[in-house]
Each structure stands twice: as structure tokens, then as C-alpha cells.
Amino acid sequence: MQTIIQEYNLNAPLPVQFFEYLWNLFHGNLGLDTIYKAPESAIIAQYLPVTLELVLTGTVLAIVLGIFTGTIAASRRGSAVDQTIKGIYLVTWASPAFIVAFLLQLIIAYDLGLLPAGGLVDPSLTTPSAVTGFPLIDALLASNFSYFWSVLQHMVLPVLALAITTFGITTRIMRSSMIEALDKDYARLAYMKGFSKTQVVYRTAFRNAIGPIITLSALFFGTATAGAVIVEDVFQYHGMGFFTVQAIFSLDNVAILALTVIIGISVIIANLVADILYGVADPRVRLE
């Protein structure tokens, strides 16, 4: 008992403990895990790439899906297609991630047997040496294609679950910004020049309408990260989300704090990347 109090410096006043925590935080020390007795940073370094791989793929898929459906809905505003797309995205947007994840698991994995139901990879395969920590990239670097294929198969369902629950907001934003772009003078000019509707939508208006999506992609990344916590739990996918749920059940506060800090930092970095991408896409906002 005394050694534990000594080890975690629990006798110090709370503000002192807090500043010590902050001091350690800025030095990359996230504390010692109370369950595994290992530095939090080492544990997270192992899980983070797995989740990043999942979340980035899911976000990209959701954005592509959202842009596609949003553009179709906007170019046929008010039609049955528009109404159907709206109905679909309202339903998927309102469905809890755990329900979507479970339905996918039940139907595609258990009933149809098309894809593995859970886990990160087929456990019988030997793991290639961790170079980057990202399972897919590591497998490619080691030219271990059976491992690569297995990871890819295990990723499909979680990525789909993430994309289905998060694409709705992209659709909505893309639709309204596309409608706005199609009402602008340049779109009218393009029609007058004799371009077909498809050409106007995909060549003239598209580039102008894509701006908000790029700015908000960091937000989508954040939503997908939160969704990953639940999706990883359902699919037993050993990433940060799975680790979070384990930490919840074992009341491992240090781990939860560390995870929250790391996820916050990744979302801030995602924001920065989104701002830079926006500069690339729209020359008007480039820095001097």
C-alpha cells in the first residue's frame, strides 16, 4: 500500500499532482497503466496505428459515399431519387453504431459466411515484424501477402459499419453546397455555353461545392474515431477502441485519460491537415 502511494505520489496536494501530470504529459509520459504495469505510451503506440488504419479508411469511404450521394441528390433536387437518398441517410445517421455493426456481423459474417466475424487477423498466421505498426503496411513491407489479405478481410465489416453510420452528414452538406453552387452565375454560364447537365454538375459545380467537405473532414474523422470505440468492441478488433472498453471495465482511469488525450491530439492534427488540404484545393485561401 505504502509503495503504491509512493509510486504514484498520492500524498501530494491535488494541484501539485495535476501539474505533475501535465509536466509528464508534455514530456510524452502518459503515466503507468494500472493493469498492465507498462507505460501508457507503449501500449497506445501498439494500438493507435491499428485504429488509425480503420478510422482513416472508414472516413475516406464515408466521404466518398457522401459526396457521391450528395451530388446525385442535389442534381435531381426534389425528385424521387433525392427523397430516397434523404430517407436513407436520415435512417443510417440515426442508427446507433452498435446496431449497424451487429447487423453486418450477423448477416454477412454469420448467416452468409462471406467474411470473418471478428478479430484483427487470422490468428494462425505469423505476424510480420512491426516496422510502422500499421498491420497492412507492415505486411506489405514484409511481402507477406496472405497476412495482408487476412487483415484486409477482417477490416471490411468494421470499415463498412463506420462508413454507414457517418456518411449521412457528408451527404447533407454536399447536397446543400452543391445546390448553392448550381444556383451560381458560373453554373448558369456553363449551361449557356452548351454544356450538358452532367458536365456542369461534375466539372463546374463540383470543384466549387467540395470546399466545405474538406474543411469538415476533420470533424468526420472525430465522429468516426468515436464510432470506432463501439465498432471495435462489437468486432473484437484489437485497436484503441477495444482497449478503451477494456479500460472501462477494469476501471483503469490512467488508461482512459491517456486515450482521451491521444484521441484529442489526433483530432487536432486532423484539423490541421484539413486546413492544409483546403489550401491545396482552393487557391483563394492559400497562405502568403
Partner: peptide
């Protein structure tokens, strides 16, 4: 706002 809502909610409610 920097931390995703669900993750922050988990952290706070555990604390």
C-alpha cells in the same frame, strides 16, 4: 470540442 463527444463522455463519466 477537440475531443470526440463520445470519447470525452466516457472519460468524464468514468472519473
Amino acid at each position: 470540442l477537440a475531443v470526440p463527444a463520445l470519447v470525452l463522455a466516457i472519460a468524464v463519466s468514468i472519473m
